[in-house]
Structures are given as C-alpha cells and as structure tokens.
C-alpha cells in the first residue's frame, strides 16, 4: 500500500455561536495516499469545502490535526510552512472569480512563484511556458485578461496557476461545477492527465457521484460534517453500506429512460 502523504485527524469546526451555531465538521479523519485521487463527496453544506479551507489555512480548525509529510501546519517553522504552501495547491470552484480581473494571464501565472520565492526570472518563464503548453493554451494568451477567456479556458489557467510552483498535492474544490457540461469532461481529463504526468496526489471534492466514479480510486462520503462511509470506489458503488450513500446514489439519474422509469416506480412503490 502506498504511503500516507496527507492525514486529517479529528477535525472539528463550528461557525457562529449561541443559537446560530453550526457544526460544520465533527471529528473528521481520513488519509490521502501518495499518488491517488481521493474523492470527497457530500451534499452542499456537508463540510467538504470547509475541510479544503482548513487544509490551505483559509479557516482555522477548532481542534484536530493536519499532517503533511511530517509537517503540521499549525505548529510549523517558517521553512516548513513555505514547503507546505508550495507543495499543497488549491484549484477553486469558480474560475470566474478566482482570477484577478485586473491582471494579465501572464501576471496571474507568475504570482505564485513570486510569493513563494526562489524562482529565477528564467525559471518562471520556462515553467509557465511548459505548463500552458501541457494544458493547451498558447503563448499569446499570456498578454490577455481573464475576461477574454471562456469558463473552461479560465479553469485551465487556474490549474496552471496551481501547478507552476511544483506541488505534490492538488486540492480540487468542485473544479467543474461552475462550468458548462460540454467542457466539464475536458477539464476532468486534464486533471487526470496532470495527475499522471506530474505524479500528483489529488483530493477531489465533488457532489457529483458520476464524476467521482470516473476519476477517483477511493472515496470519502461526508454527511453534515461527519464521515458516513469511506473506502475503494468500486466497493462502495457496488454495495454502499451507509443509508446516506445509498440515498446519494439513488439521486443520480440513470442514462437509460426505461431504467430510470422503472426505478422511479420502485421508489413510489416503496413509499406507499
């Protein structure tokens, strides 16, 4: 079994206080192993994004521990924190809001290397050129602004931005849910392709079980801040154990109309 690269242990997070308190995460623990694509699935409000935000430091967990390759970001030295930030990168959900509208694509792609530091001007140029070639963007695109691109292209730009510093772990927060269905598959294939080529470990957050089945090897199902089920994708899809997982799977429409009709009839029968 490959080694564990990223470990989340006993994560808890609540928002608000008094009557409005909301337990977003309650004792969430899971491992992400070197080289795998781990799916993190749940409805909206199940805490998927909160986990991601805790991992990149946009939220502070109330308790629990994050460990990445021997680094605990909550108690890390400056050098360790720099390595953590460099090696764990995030792709945001909405490529329309995740790119600064006033910067050119070239500036956007260069920024992570400038902030992390340690890249020469030549290195920065080479890395950008190499990666935009990989994702199918052209050198002349670098002088343009985000508004000149479609959603799919913007998400490619956002993916390149997350890859320029050479991460080992890529966190994807529903990277295709803001895109047209017609380009979703392209972006998913791109993530898969990059994972293989660059030997990445991916934590892929989604509410779409079909996407997760296509992309992931293992799966964690999250239900209102608690892990409902975790395991290998084929095993869970063949025989879901938790009632919540079964309900999620029932909600996925079947591509065959006859089968979908039959299932709906069965469901109504059962409800009666």
């Amino acid at each position: 079994m490959p080694e564990v690269l990223l470990r989340v242990a006993g994560l808890r997070k609540r928002f608000g206080r008094g009557h409005g308190v909301h337990q977003a995460l309650d004792d969430v623990s899971f491992d992400v192993r070197q080289g795998e694509i781990l799916g993190l699935v749940g409805e909206s409000g199940s805490g998927k994004s909160t986990i991601i935000r805790c991992l990149v430091g946009l939220e502070k967990e109330d308790s629990g521990e994050i460990t990445y390759d021997g680094i605990n970001p909550a108690a890390a030295s400056k050098a360790e924190l720099r390595r953590y930030r460099r090696e764990i990168q995030l792709v945001f959900q909405d490529p329309y809001s995740s790119l600064d509208p006033r910067m050119t694509v070239g500036q956007i792609l260069e920024e992570p290397m400038l902030v992390i530091g340690g890249f020469s001007a030549r290195e920065r140029r080479d890395r950008i050129n190499e990666l935009i070639h990989l994702v199918g963007l052209l050198p002349e695109h670098l002088a343009r602004y985000p508004r000149d691109f479609s959603g799919g292209q913007r998400q490619r730009i956002a993916i390149v931005r997350s890859l320029v510093v050479g991460p080992r772990v890529l966190l994807c927060d529903e990277p295709v849910s803001a895109l047209d269905v017609s380009v979703q598959a392209q972006v998913l294939n791109l993530v898969k392709d990059m994972q293989r080529r660059l030997d990445l470990t991916v934590l892929f957050v989604s509410h779409d079980l079909a996407v997760v089945k296509y992309l992931c090897t293992r799966l964690v199902v999250l239900d209102r801040g608690v892990i409902a089920e975790a395991g290998d994708v084929p095993a869970i899809y063949d025989d879901p154990q938790a009632p919540y997982t079964r309900a999620l799977m029932e909600a996925v429409p079947l591509p065959d109309p006859a089968a979908e009709r039959a299932r709906r009839a069965r469901r109504q029968e059962a409800a009666r």
Partner: peptide, 20 residues
C-alpha cells in the same frame, strides 16, 4: 473573493495583498 483567497493561501502578506 476567490482571487484574494488564492493569494492568501500562498502566504502573501496583508500589505502586499492590499496593494496588489
């Protein structure tokens, strides 16, 4: 906004974040 959060995850300082 997400583009500011993206810069924050890289550890950009607050002043630089404001300016840039």
């Amino acid at each position: 906004s997400s583009y500011v959060e993206a810069a924050r995850t890289l550890g950009m300082s607050r002043l630089r974040l404001m300016r840039r």
